[in-house]
Design a binder for these strands. Structure first.
Lengths: 232, 232
DNA sequence: GGCGGAAACGAACGTTCGTGCTATATTACG
DNA sequence: CGTAATATAGCACGAACGTTCGTTTCCGCC
């Protein structure tokens, strides 16, 4: 950490191997944890799926809690890559706000994580289990809520959304509808839930859109069938 | 099993003791499971809390899965007693629909279960774990959604809610908002979330209320501060 | 060509889990 | 009172858990 360890590219190549396996372990860990839960994510199971020994895998993290934390952060990266980043390709304003919600719904429907929204599951699992893991999960979900809230405020600044709407309130509602769709899909395989959430969100956006905002929202409304738009 | 074992009333009194301890075990089990999860609900832990031996307690159920199923059903009884029944004291119509949602929020806020809504937690825990337990949970939550949907239809039949609203859609949205409030409260202790959910629900009810429906909704809206009305 | 450190391994630890078996209290009724 | 059913306890099991330890394999570098 302190000494630069020599900037020799060769020296980096040596270290790369450990880091790379660690990364591929975390990939699996995220997948496993999203389905079985962060506690159900077992070191032995993970090791056997990676065709490694328990101890070999264990050495990368030092404790189960560290593994859980690393897994949560890895899932956060995936979420940013799959949801936030794509939505941020759209210019700030009402359309980006809509994209955030729409892409989120797609991210659950398309099974980016096997068990639906990773953080919805993790939050529910850890909400009565104090500790660093719970804190990290709470922090990340707060980030997401802040992104939504920020998007609302931007849309207002752009003059596309009425000033009277409370950004926190709207962010809460959208998040709730997303969680609701996730819940219905995970428990019943109900794909219609995505359309329901989308309709509810769009209706709310339209209701509070200014005139200039309404035009922005014109296209996705006209989409033929009620399918969620794919991110690509 | 086969032979009727005699329908003597006295025979029932004999059996009562076992049934009573079974019931008190389930009380504890529900409380424990609501906080630690249905899988975290451990027979050893439960036995020691009940000051019983593992095997003595175990004999009442025969398997962990049976214990889980019995626990889920016990939680269902509590839910009916605490939420559905009180709301059904109000005559069918818009007000009952509102009561269902309002009392539900109170039931989470007042900690009827230590871990918030028992079924929200259980659903999230078991949604990727097929089996009888998952099926039972899904069934119970479907009952709740059906109650909501039915309440919407009743309100329409009473002429208090516009015919144009889709009962399933409204039930979905209300359920989602409730789950969202539960989520925010469990993860952040955010009591404001109840007010947010309530506001969102009330706003929707008002929007789609007929004239006669609006008058019914007049009183709870005027309630001074935005507190959720207690069920008693 | 041998040294050193990182990475992976295999075996074992102490615990806890769910689940059987067997025996002992407790109780109801003939 | 005695007997049979019921309820609880005691004990042991096999498996899985997280974790530790000592060893082995691998590879860049002096």
């Amino acid at each position: 950490m302190s000494s630069g360890v020599a900037a020799r590219p060769a020296a980096r190549a040596r270290k790369a191997h450990g880091e790379r396996t660690r990364q591929s372990i975390l990939e699996r860990a995220v997948d496993l944890a999203s389905a079985e839960g962060l506690e159900g994510l077992t070191i032995g199971r993970l090791a056997s799926e990676m065709k490694m020994s328990k101890s070999g895998l264990f050495a990368h993290f030092g404790s189960k809690e560290e593994l859980q934390l690393a897994t949560v952060d890895a899932a956060r990266e995936v979420f940013i890559r799959e949801v936030v980043r794509p939505a941020f390709e759209t210019k700030e304003g009402l359309l980006r706000l809509w994209k955030l919600c729409d892409i989120w719904l797609g991210y659950v429907r398309d099974g980016v994580f096997r068990g639906g929204c990773f953080f919805a599951a993790a939050a529910s699992e850890f909400d009565s289990r104090p500790g660093p893991v719970r804190d990290r999960i709470a922090e990340i979900m707060k980030e997401w809520l802040a992104v939504l809230r920020r998007a609302v405020m931007d849309a207002q600044a752009e003059g596309q959304l009425e000033q009277s709407v409370d950004p926190s309130q709207l962010a809460f509602e959208f998040n709730a509808l997303e969680l609701g769709a996730n819940w219905a899909f995970q428990l019943y395989g109900d794909r219609q839930a995505f359309a329901r959430a989308r309709d509810a969100i769009l209706e709310r956006l339209r209701r509070h859109a200014t005139k200039s905002g309404a035009s922005v929202l014109a296209s996705p409304s006209k989409g033929k069938k009620g399918r969620v738009t794919a991110s690509k």
